[in-house]
């Protein structure tokens, strides 16, 4: 038995040696995998631990994720405790020294943006709140630009031979991104000051960017499932002060928002939330093209 194990260990050790030299990026969420791919091109092979159909708060620390993190050169995550329920378990199991927190191979995007909704009081009675602030930073493209600058720099640090490659790609991305932001802002201008109801408080950055006004949330507390009593109170509130639409992320269950949409007579809008959330959100540009498109769809 022991001999068999040792043989297996040796065989795997040799067979598993890296065959290609592309920088392996373990991204916790699809938007960071897409960003790393934009910045690295063919010098980077990015893997996303989650999909747009998964709630990044609640992920199983699956064996396949340990295996991927074990082989990564850099882990790119949101941070702000978004992955607190699973990433620490992966990091300790994978035993990959180059991606441990505190090393340059561990990158937290939330360090590079201004956090919103930082709670003044930390109490679990307030629901699933995050001490560092709301972690869903990717819904504002200006945050993506900030993270891109920091990530390009970090990629250049851990892969110095390709530093100029990452810088050039970042310059190119940054130019295209700025133009795109102006386009989206222009397209979304008529939405300014529109009142919205959200399923989960996942959109404060989007709201601030486009000037949307969040008037209610379907979750009574962040991360707490909506109850019929709470939904009724939201409905009553909407009858007093109507809202334009109900927003939910692609991974959220549709029952609560559909229920309210029918009764309040306002559309429920599914936003891709991240890359892959809808068919159109194939990359970062598609993500915001489609987000703005879907928001504008409520204007008709």
């Amino acid at each position: 038995m022991k001999k068999l194990l040792i043989t297996l260990v040796l065989v795997c050790g040799f067979a598993g040696a890296p065959a290609h030299a592309a920088l392996r990026v373990f991204a916790c969420e699809p938007e960071w995998a897409a960003l790393a791919q934009e910045l690295g091109g063919d010098r980077v092979s990015a893997f996303s631990a989650t999909t747009a159909k998964q709630d990044p708060h609640h992920i199983e620390a699956r064996p396949s994720l340990i295996a991927k993190l074990r082989q990564a050169n850099i882990a790119v995550c949101t941070g702000a405790e978004l992955e607190a329920g699973w990433l620490p378990a992966l990091l300790r199991s994978a035993a990959n020294a180059s991606v441990q927190p505190g090393t340059r191979g561990y990158f937290e995007a939330s360090h590079y943006v201004s956090m919103l909704e930082v709670p003044a009081r930390l109490d679990r009675a307030e629901g699933d709140i995050h001490a560092a602030g709301n972690p869903h930073i990717q819904t504002d493209p200006r945050n993506i630009a900030r993270v891109a600058a920091a990530l390009a720099q970090r990629l250049a640090e851990i892969d110095p031979a390709q530093a100029s490659h990452y810088r050039a790609r970042h310059r190119d991305f940054s130019a295209r991104w700025s133009v795109a932001i102006q386009r989206w802002e222009k397209q979304a201008a008529p939405l300014r000051n529109a009142a919205v109801v959200v399923q989960h408080k996942g959109f404060p950055y989007l709201e601030r960017w486009l000037g949307l006004r969040q008037v209610a949330a379907l979750e009574p507390k962040p991360g707490v499932e909506s109850t019929s009593a709470h939904l009724s109170s939201v409905l009553a509130q909407l009858q007093r002060e109507p809202a334009r639409m109900i927003l939910r992320a692609a991974y959220s269950d549709d029952r609560a928002s559909n229920w309210l949409s029918e009764r309040a007579g306002i559309p429920a809008v599914v936003l891709p939330f991240t890359v892959g959330g809808t068919e159109q959100a194939k990359d970062l540009f598609g993500l915001f093209d489609d987000t703005v498109q879907r928001l504008r769809g409520t204007l008709k």
Partner: peptide, 13 residues
């Protein structure tokens, strides 16, 4: 002592 293999199939000994 634990060791995780550098493979896509998770293997730990």
């Amino acid at each position: 002592l634990r060791w995780v293999a550098p493979t896509d199939l998770f293997m730990e000994f």
